[in-house]
Nucleic acid binder design. Sequence first.
DNA 1: CGTTTTTTTGAGAGCGGTCAATGATGGTGG
DNA 2: CCACCATCATTGACCGCTCTCAAAAAAACG
Lengths: 222, 222
Amino acid sequence: MLALDTRYTPAKATKSSKLVEFMPGVELPGFSMPFERDSEVFGEGEPADFAYKVISGVVRTLRVLDDGRRQISAFYFPGDIFGVEIGEEHANSAEAVTTVEIALVRQSALLKRTGENPAAACELWAQTSQELKRARSHLVLLGRQTACERVANFLLQMSGRQNNDESVSLPMSRTDIADYLGLTIETVSRTLSQMERKGAIALLNCKHIAIKRRDALECSEH
Amino acid sequence: MLALDTRYTPAKATKSSKLVEFMPGVELPGFSMPFERDSEVFGEGEPADFAYKVISGVVRTLRVLDDGRRQISAFYFPGDIFGVEIGEEHANSAEAVTTVEIALVRQSALLKRTGENPAAACELWAQTSQELKRARSHLVLLGRQTACERVANFLLQMSGRQNNDESVSLPMSRTDIADYLGLTIETVSRTLSQMERKGAIALLNCKHIAIKRRDALECSEH
DNA sequence: CGTTTTTTTGAGAGCGGTCAATGATGGTGG
DNA sequence: CCACCATCATTGACCGCTCTCAAAAAAACG
């Protein structure tokens, strides 16, 4: 029901190539292209020919089980890189959460560069290591936290990635939030409403939330 | 209640140094030392001076919340490396699941080597990347799978890491399994019993399980 | 302004958690 | 070698959080 095969990647390999600063101090030949909302950037199991960097917009990576259950592993914001793989193929799918502009560089070019340039290799490793750290925090959230704690953490996480002081923007749908937090959309919605009733947040509209009292986020009594 | 501060690491820095093959083709000065069951190899927040490799036995890495909730992020078996960090300090604790022998090398030496040797850098990145891949599968398990599926996956995972054909050995306690799977020990125990009743497995003893019918592992009806 | 999609809210059910008791297991000392 | 004790694993009864199903409300879109 969510499967929109709107992806339009016919030109992946035929775009005009220019230099892309893929990581700090690492420029590689590549190109930039737009993806529309909910289109697939790459699919699980597809050959990992390219590495990706978000120029603008938001991307999600996820895995889908046979029966449609989805688990989003991460959201990527402008400047973030994703889709760098050790194996021959992508272990997750990547989709555009919003309209996005994405820079692509050849994975082979990236690996070649890291083979020559220790600083680039270190940077690549640092990126992966950073992702691993995030994934481990995500494990704690999914394995050991209540719905309230998950939503609260999510809001703080999103807040931390934005400069806007006390208003968090949520570019993704409730479905995405739920599939990131291992909950249902109903539980996410109810939890947000409950937080608002307690005065911890204000739902400006469904994509913009003001955090009023951080201490009141963690739900305790009813 | 689980906090055994049995760690005996007084000699971490004063052991006689020899060459350790830390990763394939990467030999570094280091040393090997034993840890007893349930002792701490390193703690969350401690400076990440060393990188570690399991020689024998099993290690767990985990994070503990204020109220005692534990989430185990991974188990490490002989040959596995762990504790390599991008930051100044360890993001997880590491503890001995069984009596273990662990090789230690200085993180600084490892990074210095990867800065000189592209092959070593690539190998380190591959290791981290591999871990990330595992963590992402773990995310799906914790976020989207039922107790039955989690336990079944765990058994298959453990089976896959052992050569013994149809009998899986579980060196860790039920508590460890539960904290890895985001469940309680009661649920783990009940699920295993239920699998046995269905003829999918046989509980030889509480640390040894025979997988009889892989297809029957996934619990469906009652 | 009507249609479709997304979000919110409600009512009820079920899976897994909590609390508690029983049964194994393993280590220790008599 | 066995009795004793401590720890760990299993089982049972019950409860509550989150899911499911359903409908209403709000937002997005043409």
